[in-house]
């Protein structure tokens, strides 16, 4: 990884909700083609961090830049058009739209814009990628949980993001589904995509991530390769609580 290759850069970012500091002075870089895991106990501010990168929230302090340009003062739709795509911790699909239309939504307004036949074809391709093209005309209400997650991933991929944010994409899957899910993300990795993923599944983190950023109570407590950080004393203490350390 080249030193200058930081495509995403988070610098001194803090987020306050009233008196609560959800994210505190976070800084980290993501290089192009790198898969970075953001891990930490529940409530440590991971989702809030993702929300600030995607523009759902504005940081209270600090800035986030993409390829050297500050994006943290842009609205979410502009950040999406700059090439940041995301999935949500709790899947968000568009209930009145078919599976295909849900995916097309990502292709029409995003980073690269398509319309008409071209958008339909591209949406089909994306559904194919996540292994769901057969369901393209089904209503989303008929989908299983993993299929809903696949549709959401296909929608995000349809925007051809340069940076992909996955918030606990593997959470809530049963063991068979988990295997399929990990394979899918492995395929993204093999394509050389730049990914920031929040994850709890340790095996997946070990096999997928180049690097991990560990958060606890809103702050970064460790950063390094998955093996490094997962054996770090402070990280273990954060996960297991003070008593066990």
């Amino acid at each position: 990884m080249r030193q200058s290759g930081a495509i995403l850069s988070v610098k001194g970012v803090t987020k306050r909700f009233g008196g609560l500091v959800a994210v505190s002075n976070m800084s980290f870089d993501v290089a192009e083609h790198e898969m970075v895991g953001v891990i930490g106990p529940n409530g440590s501010g991971k989702t809030t961090m993702m929300n600030m990168i995607s523009g759902a929230f504005k940081p209270s302090e600090g800035r986030i830049s993409m390829k050297g340009r500050v994006i943290s003062d842009l609205p979410a739709q502009r950040i999406a058009r700059e090439g940041v795509g995301r999935t949500f911790q709790l899947v968000r699909l568009l209930p009145g739209l078919s599976v295909l239309e849900n995916v097309k939504a990502g292709a029409v307004f995003g980073h690269r814009k398509r319309w008409g036949r071209e958008a339909d074809d591209f949406a089909h391709d994306m559904l194919d990628r996540v292994g769901l093209d057969a369901m393209s005309h089904a209503p989303v209400s008929s989908l299983t949980y993993i299929d809903q997650k696949r549709v959401e991933l296909a929608r995000t991929l349809a925007g051809e993001p340069e940076i992909l944010l996955l918030d606990e994409w593997l959470a809530g899957l049963n063991p068979t589904e988990l295997e399929t899910g990990v394979e899918l993300i492995h395929a993204l990795r093999d394509e050389g995509r730049t990914v920031v993923m929040v994850e709890h599944v340790m095996d997946a983190i070990r096999s997928l991530c180049d690097r991990c950023v560990v958060m606890s109570s809103g702050a970064k407590i460790a950063e390094g390769s998955p093996d490094e950080v997962l054996s770090n004393r402070e990280v273990i203490r954060a996960y297991l609580g003070d008593d066990d350390a």
Partner: peptide, 24 residues
Amino acid sequence: SRIGFALRIIGGDETVARHVGINT
């Protein structure tokens, strides 16, 4: 049109609409 499609997405979920790049 695109704007008609955008309105349906807004009706479905405005957060999603913004995150796929729609100026809601």
